[in-house]
Amino acid sequence: MKLLKFPWLVLINILKCMDTVDLIKLSSTNRRLREKFTSKINPGGIHVDFYPTSASIKIGEFCISFDRHASAYAIPIGNQTIGPVTINAYCLFRNENKSWKTVVEDVHTPCLTLAQYCKTIFPKAELESFCFITEWSDEQYELEESTRQLLASWSQIFNKF
């Protein structure tokens, strides 16, 4: 099967039937596919949450949580490359592939990198919320310099923060 041989409208229809995570992976396979087709899809709003020891991004129905702490209930699904980010992923709910978690030290940079990537490949997707909590109980934290720079560049692009 040659996906790119389908008429434009049919291919758009196919992409609209895909899960967001598959769409993100598919968009990384070919520039033409990304520019002419996946960029026309709106998988739903983007939500980014930053906490002191975790960060999460939700796009459409798909959510990835970056956490410093492991969870006993998560099911390992191995290394996953999603856009510019490769993670050792865990699935949070059995029989569905829409909520992932990964345990990493720097939780904010990959989350923001992925958010930026999603906004680039899905220009129609709105950044619907950005929650940034710098205090957690009595614990405070500061962003790493690399994350600060990424955040600064991102805010210039989207003028949101």
Partner: peptide, 29 residues
């Protein structure tokens, strides 16, 4: 059309980008 598209879309489930390239016959850049 919706049902056919769903069948084709479902072929992407749990695949890596390289596997997607093979399944859908997507050329490299």
């Amino acid at each position: 059309m919706d049902y056919c598209c769903r069948v084709i879309g479902d072929m992407a489930k749990d695949k890596t980008p390289e596997e997607l390239r093979i399944i859908y016959g997507i050329p490299t850049d």
